[in-house]
Computed example of a mutant assay.
Amino acid sequence: MVAMHAAEPPRSARGGRPRDPSRDDVIRAAILRLLAEVGYGALTMDAVAAEAGVGKATIYRRWRTKQDLVVDTISDLNRAIAVPADTGFLEGDLRAMMHLVAEVTGGPAGAAIRSLLPAMQYQPALVEAFQSGPLAVWRSAYAAMWRRAEERGEVRSGLAGSVVAEATSALIVQRWLLTGEPVDRQYVDHVLDVVVMPLIRNARPAEA
């Protein structure tokens, strides 16, 4: 798999020695774990410092507020998400993409994002962080996948953004957000075989 975005150079702190990007990653991982455990409302800067094993000054040199800390962490997830390479045919691409969505939503990042849903109702910055981070990666990867399928003549034009396209991830997202049931590879493959591929077969270009 290939990285979707290259890492950006470390952002400078407000004075003092340069930030250590490896420590940033440790702190962000701690934030995701805590969000999954306690949610946004109960998250504190002190708890993040303790979970990451760093001093509070290290946290405050990087982020002034809890919202800054969480927004930066969620926005930065696009750096960590790797998208599958082109398999050469749509079913292979779909299987890889659906496995990716299941992996992300079923992991620490997915648990953290789910815990943020109540806060997103009154924190627009959190919504923007999700849209510009992991959601942007998924949308870009899916758009590229549908474009390749159209170029190969596997599907009719304009399928991206359609109900058929939405159906490829809808059941995974439903389990992630609503039911809490596990989303493993076996479930993803079953959804692909029973639901998605029959829809795709109906979306093939009309024969001349």
Score class of each variant (00 low, 15 high):
residue 193 D to V: 07
residue 200 I to P: 04
residue 41 G to P: 00
residue 200 I to A: 07
residue 122 Y to E: 14
residue 159 L to E: 09
residue 187 Y to W: 13
residue 20 D to L: 06
residue 124 P to T: 12
residue 77 L to P: 00
residue 146 W to N: 09
residue 115 S to W: 02
residue 2 V to H: 10
residue 160 A to S: 12
residue 16 G to H: 10
residue 192 L to G: 06
residue 12 S to R: 15
residue 155 V to A: 08
residue 48 V to G: 01
residue 137 V to S: 03
residue 128 E to A: 15
residue 117 L to A: 11
residue 166 E to M: 10
residue 177 L to H: 04
residue 143 A to P: 00
residue 100 L to R: 06
residue 138 W to H: 10
residue 75 S to A: 14
residue 51 E to Q: 15
residue 12 S to E: 12
residue 8 E to L: 15
residue 34 L to T: 06
residue 136 A to D: 13
residue 153 G to R: 13
residue 174 Q to D: 13
residue 156 R to F: 02
residue 52 A to L: 11
residue 179 T to Q: 05
residue 59 I to Y: 03
residue 172 I to V: 15
residue 160 A to M: 11
residue 143 A to Q: 14
residue 201 R to M: 12
residue 77 L to A: 15
residue 190 H to S: 13
residue 129 A to Y: 03
residue 28 R to H: 09
residue 86 D to M: 05
residue 202 N to D: 14
residue 208 A to F: 09
residue 24 D to L: 09
residue 42 A to M: 08
residue 92 G to H: 06
residue 100 L to V: 04
residue 106 G to N: 03
residue 33 R to A: 10
residue 106 G to S: 07
residue 26 V to K: 12
residue 79 R to S: 09
residue 3 A to K: 14
residue 208 A to W: 10
residue 179 T to S: 15
residue 14 R to E: 11
residue 154 E to A: 10
residue 185 R to D: 12
residue 62 R to D: 02
residue 88 G to A: 08
residue 150 E to K: 06
residue 107 G to Y: 04
residue 148 R to N: 12
residue 30 A to P: 01
residue 81 I to T: 06
residue 185 R to Y: 01
residue 116 L to M: 10
residue 43 L to N: 02
residue 97 M to V: 00
residue 9 P to A: 10
residue 73 T to S: 11
residue 1 M to N: 09
residue 62 R to Y: 01
residue 72 D to A: 15
residue 142 Y to L: 09
residue 197 M to A: 04
residue 207 E to M: 14
residue 110 G to K: 04
residue 6 A to Y: 10
residue 140 S to T: 13
residue 202 N to Y: 09
residue 57 A to I: 08
